[in-house]
Amino acid sequence: MSPLLYLTQQTINALAIGSLYALVSIGLSLIFGILRMANFAHGDMMMVGAFATLLLVHAGVPFGVAVVGGVLIGALAGALVERIAYRPVRGSSDVTLLLTSLAVTYILENLGILIFTSSPQNFPLPALLDDVVSMFDGQLIFTRINVLTLAATGVALLFLGWFVTRTTMGLGMRAAAEDLGAANIVGLDVNRLIIVAFVLASGFAGLAGVLWAAQSGVVEPAMGFTPLLKAFIAAIIGGFGSIPGAVLGGFLLGALETMIVAFLPSSITPYRDAIVFALLIAFLLFRPAGILRVQGEAKL
C-alpha cells in the first residue's frame, strides 16, 4: 500500500470524526463563553436532532427536508431549554449551572427513553448515501456520508464564520462572550443574544447528531453522551470559550483518535477514550487556558 494513499485514508478518517467533534464543541464553547456554563445537556441536542429527523422521514418527508427540519427542531429545543431551565439560574454559582444542565440531560435522555425506548433504532439513511466509494483498488475507502459530513461541516463553519464577523448579532455574541457586563452597558439585548447563541449551538449539535446517526446507522437516547465528553475535551484543548479554538480542538481530537487506532497496537485501541482523557488531563495541567485562549480566568 502506498504511504501517500494510507495517509490520505487516515486524513479522511480523521476529518470525518473531527468535524463532528468540532460541530459539537463549537456550541459548548459559545455557551461557555457567554454564560460561563459547562452545558452538559448540549449533547442531547444531537439526540433531539437525530430523532426529529427520523420521525420526519417516517412521516414521509423527503430525507433532505427531514434533515433540515431535524436540525431546526434541535435548535429550537436548545432555545427552549435556555428559556425554561437556564435563565432562572443565570448568574448563579458554577456548580448550580452545572447541576442544572446535568438535570436537563437526565430529563431529556429519559424523555427519549419514554418516547423511543432505550434500544437503538435504525437511522433511515438513503442507500445512495451509504454507498462505499472505493478508489485505487480499495486502498482508499470512504462512504458518501463521510464526504457529506465534511461538506456539511464546511458549509456550517463558513456560515458561522460569516455570522460572527459580519452580522451585528454575531459580533454582539462575541462581545457578550468577552464581557457580558459591557455588552449590557452598550445596550445589546443580552437575553436575545443568549437565545440566539443557544439556537446556533443547538442547531450545530443537531446537525452533528444527524451526521453521527448517519455514520453509525443508529439513533438512541444516550447517543449524545460520549460525543459530548469528546466535545468537552476538544473545546477545552482549543481554549474553552473560543470558537476557532473549538474547531481546532475538534479536528485535533479527531486526528489524535485516528492516530491511536492507526498506529498503536490493537490491544490498546479499546482504551482509546481512556488515553484521550488522560492526555486531556495532562494537557490541562500544563496549559489550563487551552491553545487559543490566554485569559488567565481558567485557573485558580
Binding site: 464577523t165 451585528t168 459580533l171 454582539g172 462575541r174 462581545a175 468577552e178 464581557d179 459591557a182 455588552a183 452598550v186 445589546l188
Partner: peptide, 12 residues
C-alpha cells in the same frame, strides 16, 4: 471588547 476590532467595537 478586547478581541473585537476597533471597527467592530464601534459598530456594536
Amino acid at each position: 471588547f478586547p478581541g473585537l476590532t476597533v471597527a467592530e467595537n464601534l459598530r456594536l
